[in-house]
Design a binder for these strands. Structure first.
Lengths: 193, 193
DNA sequence: TGATTTTCTTAACCAAGGTCAATGAAAAAG
DNA sequence: CTTTTTCATTGACCTTGGTTAAGAAAATCA
């Protein structure tokens, strides 16, 4: 694990609570690092996920297939945790996870998670914090979504995740903000005038 | 606490894991039951929440005030937990919580929660399950929302929470599904034809 | 490099929701 | 039982996004 990756993890973990070097090592030891090539499918619809992961480098999209069309509901990038619902509830996934670029991520599975938690009880409360924070983030995102128009969502996206606009094709951004590529073109035109 | 309320709680708790009579008592002892009258504001925008609650009877709406307009993002009814983001992250709330009817709820606060958890470690892992399930529910709701039109959302709401249509005024249902009351009228007309 | 595929833009027309204003119906208040 | 207020519906007109089809621009590949 190189220094950049280490920094991303530590930065992430420190958001939740002061973290000891010891706990840091425990977490690193119990997760496996993997590199995925561009366009790789991490989770299929109907499949039960056995892994959650943390992105060190790269970008992953989450999408539903509706009438043969991809409907993107999330882009995950560096420093984000991805815990598929299917990983948590053991039910077949309703959505896909697919890399947009070559992606390096730390993978964890329930067995090693349980093992680590039984060895290090402080890990459990730490995971609790991460989980609680996730709820706050998701509900905030939901509220932001429903309280804005597609045009406003595009403006917000430019402000809050300008990197995404650069690295993701526009027609996928369109899907993410809930409109068709043609409409996003028009919105962009409206905005430049 | 009467039998109906007891039943609602036990039904709720059993969704997550088999629950012992003992743990049941612990939870009941550490939460205070309160009755709120119709129209009571539980949480104000800008306020830091010190309580989460579980609804035994009644209905609570969550809404943002945008340009003086209520934008409803959730209705909570019997058997649902409400954990304000502000309760979790300690930051001022971005939204309001207000009762739609007389509402009876079990309230918990961080102090009694921590006390109970230190006395009964098994409670912590139980709360972990509840929290994880919340994430699954919220992301499912989010995905359902973004993948449907207002008309489809209205049809879904009728199927999945027919009680809400009965007990909540239509213009508030309209706000909840993201449209104006006039548009909901038109949708209803379209659907009857 | 030239060829091919992918992505982005434009335009004309359509459908759904927003706005404004008027009217009716239903509930609440007196 | 009225009166008043709140809520729901309707219609005319506007705005935004969807659809379809064509072509331009960019990225990829041979």
């Amino acid at each position: 694990m190189d220094n950049l990756h280490r920094k991303i993890i530590i930065e992430f973990l420190s958001k939740y609570a002061p973290i000891s070097k010891e706990l840091e090592e425990i977490i690193l030891e119990h997760s496996g690092i993997k590199t995925l090539s561009k366009g790789e499918v991490i989770l299929q619809e109907g499949q039960v996920s056995k892994e959650c992961f943390f992105i060190l480098k790269g970008c992953v999209k989450k999408f539903h297939l509706i009438d043969g069309q991809e409907k993107i509901t999330a882009f995950y990038t560096e420093g984000q945790v991805v815990t598929p619902n299917s990983y948590t509830d053991g039910k077949p996934s309703k959505y896909f996870l697919k890399t947009m670029e070559e992606t390096i991520a730390l993978f964890g599975n329930p067995d090693s998670e349980k093992e680590a938690m039984s060895l290090y009880p402080e890990l459990a409360s730490f995971i609790g914090l991460v989980t609680e924070k996730l709820i706050v983030d998701i509900t905030d995102e939901f509220d932001t979504w429903v309280n804005h128009t597609p045009e406003e969502r595009y403006i917000l996206l430019n402000q809050e995740r300008p990197d995404l606009i650069q690295r993701v094709p526009q027609y996928q951004i369109a899907s993410y903000i809930g409109i068709k590529p043609e409409s996003l073109s028009r919105i962009r035109k409206r905005l430049t005038n």
